[in-house]
């Protein structure tokens, strides 16, 4: 997992992108994944974008790990998702998590999205 630099993290609306390097977020890695995301989140930013471009597969334990990471955020912070593969996107839609998370097609458009 890799997080981008925190320059300007104090500014209102600051964005952090966390790129997930795992190709599967399943029950083998779910707990470590949740802990790693929590450790990487910069407490100063208001938006955290999880870049899932490399993730080809997620199961319900991986989904639970992402939900747990979101629940660990500070009240003013948002966890958003970007670059979901079709089957990963399906997991979020089938469980109605697409109503909880903002899902972006790609990281650049996610960065540019305006959130008051």
């Amino acid at each position: 997992m890799d997080a981008d630099g925190a320059a300007g993290a104090d500014l209102p609306g600051a964005v952090q992108v966390i790129r997930v390097e795992e190709d599967r977020i399943d029950s083998v890695v779910a707990i470590q994944f949740k802990d790693a995301v929590r450790a990487l989140i910069d407490p100063r930013v208001s938006r955290v974008i999880l870049d899932l471009e490399r993730v080809a597969f997620i199961d319900s334990s991986g989904l639970g790990a992402i939900i747990a990471a979101m629940k660990g955020l500070d009240p003013g912070q948002q966890l958003e998702l970007a670059a979901l593969s079709p089957v990963v996107d399906k997991v979020f839609r089938m469980t109605r998590m697409d109503t909880i998370f903002t899902i972006h097609e790609a990281v650049p458009s996610a960065r540019a999205a305006f959130h008051p």
Binding site: I67, A68, M70, K71, R96, I100
Partner: peptide, 20 residues
């Protein structure tokens, strides 16, 4: 069956397997 999505803090972290 899954509960309709409540607010973020109350969201379940499991129980989605059989739904899928």
């Amino acid at each position: 069956r899954i509960a309709s999505a409540p607010e973020r803090a109350a969201l379940a972290e499991g129980g989605y397997g059989w739904h899928l």
